[in-house]
Design a binder for these strands. Sequence first.
DNA 1: AAATCGTGGCG
DNA 2: TCGCCAAGATT
Length: 299
Amino acid sequence: MPVATASQNASARPRRAIVRWYRTHGRSLPWRDASTTAWQVLVSEVMLGQTPVSRVAPAYLAWIERWPDPETTAAASPADILRMWGRLGYPRRALRLREAAIVITRDHHGTVPTTDDELRALPGVGEYTAAAVRAFAYGQRAVVLDTNVRRVLSRLISGTERPPASLTNSERELATSLLPRTSKSAAEWSVAVMELGALVCTATKPVCSACPVRTDCAWRAADYPASTVAPRRQAWHGTDRQCRGRLMSVLRESSGAVPGALLREAWDDAAQRERCLDSLLDDALVAIVGDDEYALPSS
DNA sequence: AAATCGTGGCG
DNA sequence: TCGCCAAGATT
């Protein structure tokens, strides 16, 4: 009889309950089809960073129909990539996805790499995305720690409403200790706990009555104490982000070169507009194509 | 390591 | 109305 540690015994039952819940309640999302390639999983993960599932789903389907693999993506112009990205937000993600496609095509024979080091060397791929590709595309045993998983574990195990502001080693160790031994079980556990956070253990108004592990929940046992750490507020109105977004919108909607006058109409504050245009040029999201003429980069 | 980077839906 | 939030990465 193998000896199990106390923490393993304590976590085994809720873990099984979450996986069982997922098998009946998990959503069938486009990127969860068995036919989804590793590249397409990567596309979905990049799109899902900071953009809700409901808005990603249709954009993802249109995207992979047009550019189904790294080769076709690498061959597309930045302008086409940015127009197709549309209003998903954070357009630099789109540029990095294209750059990743170029690297994969050139250095990996068009095959998405399978190791953590190689994945994280790709533009726009960080700790979470590398783990997600390994688990969801390749069925590997990887610690997938996104905002949903962090929230579930903080409530279920730590008894706090929210996880720390930034990912800590303590969270990594906890998630590692909970990861099932076999790769197959680990990969399913990772989607399952993520899905629980997305559908039940939500940031606001969690549906605890529908939770498969409510009787194990440390946060519930402590009578749902409110978290003291205030989430960082996202300023928006009048920010550079709003200004950049406005300028990008004008460039996206125009088929060719855009006169500077059109950009000036889009944002009143001249100093801020120039600063943002400069930053967009720096980010290679915009190109100068003539005297006082701008466009999305053609290459 | 805290700040930065878009966008739209919802209560 | 407006603040909050959504599968993060980069610097």
